[in-house]
Design a protein around this nucleic acid. Structure first.
Lengths: 368, 368
DNA sequence: TGCACTATTGACAACGTGAGACAATTTTCA
DNA sequence: TGAAAATTGTCTCACGTTGTCAATAGTGCA
């Protein structure tokens, strides 16, 4: 299919859209998305216009039923007309409530999957009339302190601390309640929301055996990762429940320490186990990124995933899981729901010792 | 490499870390990351403790030089000790300045690459003492209106509107200055920051010819995409500069309309052009996601990227570009710098008609 | 007409901060 | 010692909102 490319090119700078500058056919713009005008005024001004008192305006805005219907209509018309919004700053001061929940994202917001932690939390904050303040922090830098100062200045009512991978942390309690997300306090001093990694691995392994696979090889993440330990346990337990002993089929396929750029040992391990007497019939990967690596390594060995060997994984990482060919069957980590749960705990005020473990969902594609 | 997995498992609920519940070796927790205590107090209280007057405390906090060094030290010590932060709400009200910049992310925050738009903007806001408020909105839903209301309530000083892909929009001006990010107003009524897609394609194509490739096939994005048009132009112009006519080697490889889940036509196109008389020696893809697809499709045709044929692309999408084997050579879109630029414009107040076009960077790997 | 009652509206203070005007006090210098 | 300078304090106001409480208007009844 050819693509027509007209006329000579001349790059001009200025305000006109590229398409026009280039002499190309104009692309239909997206439908109107007007931003409401913001009126920088106050209730006193509304009152003046409505020829009423300041307090009556306040009552209308706060839906106080003790207002005459006619008066209310008049005031609401004026508010709508000039697009007035009550000042949040003044409300905060008057009510001594900020409605602000802090979200400290320790590296989270830079990676795909865990964006869902942020999205889930923000959606709930939104639904429940709270304002979420997001901070990308990096441990060991001043960013954490600065975020704390900001949140203190805004009198945040609770703080969600989100880690980039499931881990143990050590966070001293302060005056503000904390909810730990994708991590937990080593001394259980804060409420926490984590993925149920044991269940994820158990369920996935159960499915694997149910489908008739008998020699799954688990290329797990580093042994210093909490998730690895839990998943390893779930893998072995589920195999045992199915009447098999699988501990010998588990390998550590990540050579870099936690947090560092991931380096896989998949090539060496695959070369080893695929040349052994009893070859695995399925490769279970610790994460979708590793699975992508495994697809390529298996290809190098002349094996086609889905035909010669099965692959399964953890994450359901967009867009990798769908783009791999064949599509990757994987256990989805419940990041979005974890974010939602954490925000609900933050708003409602959770018990310190509360730990929520959220289950994952099996996403079936063609690799298994 | 075997992985040791001890003891029987028993899942208990409660506050103790999983590793302990499971009888696993404890993982060393991350170093202490204490959150500062937030003192819910005011300057009057500080003054009481320092046995001084309210005004002097105010002077210290606002760095008034007319304060004795000793007094200043005493007050600062008390402020540090109890972790006092001046109430942002009160400051906003007093100063009539919110220091808030709104960031409306139209679907942006859900995809990998454009997270960098958010990161760049937030980093600058941070460095310059502003508070960025992030809203994920969806066109056509009420979320946009709600975000506007929130920003109005906080008396935002400027609003950044970020689109998920380079496009033309139609946003009516309001009382608050807008900066458009990854999009531009059809009538040039707002400052805008966009990637220089023409330059990206021109430079990449130039490099391709410099390296000796002579028959690149460009699998471009949909013709309704601004970026496609610009890149198509850049591709043809660069080829012409190198003394070749390449317009006939350009194809539209995306069949879904803009915004919808991407569907590629790569299989059909590749089958066609790879069986033609003059085969391409390089496949230039409209985005890294498409490149991943192309890797697999070429594999199906028995061709190995990097050996039998070269591939290049646009995005430098983490983690795909690095994980593909061989690594994908690609033009990086300057999302992070675009985010930074937009925030700087938002803070400094840009000319309405200002359009920044940021250049991309060639990231060299082994696919070319 | 007067009274009790309700419905509706209004006056005022206070939240925490910052700034101006100006007075009071202490320190420094000639 | 006196004058000038440095430092600190007192008082006031303003920002925009909302809770407390008082005032006013309207209604029904004797």
């Amino acid at each position: 299919m050819l693509w027509f490319c007209p006329g000579p090119f001349k790059l001009t700078s200025g305000c006109r859209p590229f398409a026009v500058d280039l002499g190309l056919a104009a692309v239909a713009p997206i439908e109107n998305c007007p931003t409401k005008a913001i009126a920088l005024t106050n209730q006193r001004e509304i009152a003046r216009r409505a020829k009423t008192s300041l307090k009556t305006v306040s009552r209308v805005i706060n839906r106080d039923p003790l207002v005459n219907a006619e008066t209310r209509a008049r005031i609401e018309a004026i508010i709508a007309e000039i697009g007035y919004e009550p000042s949040q700053a003044a409300r905060m001061m008057r009510s001594q409530r900020s409605n602000v929940i802090g979200f400290l994202a320790d590296g989270v917001a830079t990676t795909t999957s865990s964006i869902d932690l942020v999205r889930g939390a923000q959606d709930v904050a939104w639904e429940r009339g709270k304002q979420m303040m997001l901070f990308n922090i990096e441990r060991g830098t001043q960013s954490a302190d600065m975020a704390d100062s900001q949140l203190a200045a805004f009198r945040a009512e609770a703080i969600i601390y989100a880690a980039i991978f499931h881990q143990e942390v050590d966070i001293a309690p302060t005056g503000v309640p904390h909810v730990l997300l994708n991590c937990f306090d080593r001394r259980g001093r804060h409420a926490a929301v984590v993925p149920d990694d044991y269940q994820l691995a158990f369920d996935l392994t159960r499915i694997i055996y149910e489908r008739g696979y008998r020699r799954p090889a688990f290329l797990n993440l580093g042994t210093d990762i909490v998730a690895s330990q839990l998943r390893g346990k779930g893998f072995v337990d589920a195999a045992r429940t199915a009447g098999h002993e699988a501990a010998g089929q588990m390998h550590t396929a990540v050579v870099s320490p936690a947090g560092a750029p991931t380096e896989f040992a998949t090539r060496r391990i695959l070369a080893e186990i695929m040349s052994a007497g009893e070859k695995p019939d399925l490769i279970l990967c610790g994460q979708d990124i590793m699975a992508m690596n495994v697809y390529f390594e298996l290809g190098e060995l002349g094996l086609k995933v889905g035909r010669d060997i099965a692959v399964a994984s953890f994450d359901n990482l967009d867009p990798i899981a769908t783009l791999l060919q064949p599509g990757l069957s994987t256990m989805e980590l419940p990041y979005y729901d974890m974010g939602r749960a954490a925000m609900n705990l933050a708003i409602d005020g959770a018990d310190e010792s509360q730990v929520l473990r959220l289950k994952g969902k099996f996403i079936e594609r063609q690799s298994l």
